[in-house]
Design a protein around this nucleic acid. Sequence first.
RNA 1: GGCUGGAUAGCUCAGUCGGUAGAGCAGAGGACUGAAAAUCCUCGUGUCGGGGGUUCGAUUCCCUCUCCAGCCA
Length: 288
Amino acid sequence: MGKSALAVELAEVLNGEIVGADAFQIYSGLEILTAQPDATLRQRVVHHLIGSVPCQEVFNAGRYLPLAEAAISDIRARGKVPIVVGGTGLYIKALTHGISETPQVDVEIREKLEAFSLEELLNQLKGLDPDSVETIDTKNRRRVQRALEICLQTGEAASKLREEWKRPSRPCRGIVLTREREELTERIHVNILQMLERGVMEEIRSLKSIGATAQEAIGYRDAVLHLNGSLTREQWVEQTHRASCQYAKRQLTWFKNQTKFPLLKLSAFSNLRDSLTASLDSLTAPLE
RNA sequence: GGCUGGAUAGCUCAGUCGGUAGAGCAGAGGACUGAAAAUCCUCGUGUCGGGGGUUCGAUUCCCUCUCCAGCCA
């Protein structure tokens, strides 16, 4: 989409610093694959939380929130403007609305639950927390399992701990960047080819290990298959491109329907300057 | 040239003992409270390769043609 470059322009105008809100750019070791802002951009403006967690570690929204809040306070304390940039809707919503007070994920419990079928998980959950069964998507294993994890860890019903998104919106302004679908598709293609030129495959080959969450990055598993020889370079490009386009669509759906931020279609502008001006206009919208 | 398989949704393929057909993937839309670049939900009319025959009725049986594989010459 072109978030990183635009964010740096904005930060320079607003005397700001950037706080990453991207579940995968957070990892170090996957700089190329996750398209982290390059050295030039990072020299111009201070970036927080990007490439800051070893990709061997398990990371999630629960870990993200306090880190991001700390970064934001720190920026404010120095009289600067925090600019949160990223494509992970859940992380941004956690920041603006907070999330329920539930304990950190217990890896052992999670692993134990992996062994059960969805039906078995549902039955357990029905016994412990019938209300949850009413509210969550019971066809979605992740949701059912998470609710059960909370019940088992806390000894309480997950539905009790789950509060409405509280802190109905901490004051902030925001914009959602979009582009024409075709243009976006083309840009994604170019970006993927650039990853190869920059050495994604070498980056991935040199990893000694990778954590359970980081390995979900688009293109990672297929890259491993390519390095094994079971997938051609072209196939890697094709699959990664497809997955990225699908992801971009899901992001749009999320931001359109889960936030009140105005949409800004970048396709209308031919250069960064104009995009910046338009962004600044949009950002004068009332505080959310 | 002969034989044997194929030819069905954008792609890979099921299927119809003859009553005009369905999965996965792709595509479109949507959901989303600690795995979120994840996970999940909804949406399937297509000359069933062309032509002819049998039949009340053929994508399904028969003949023929075309194309693609493989085998034999």
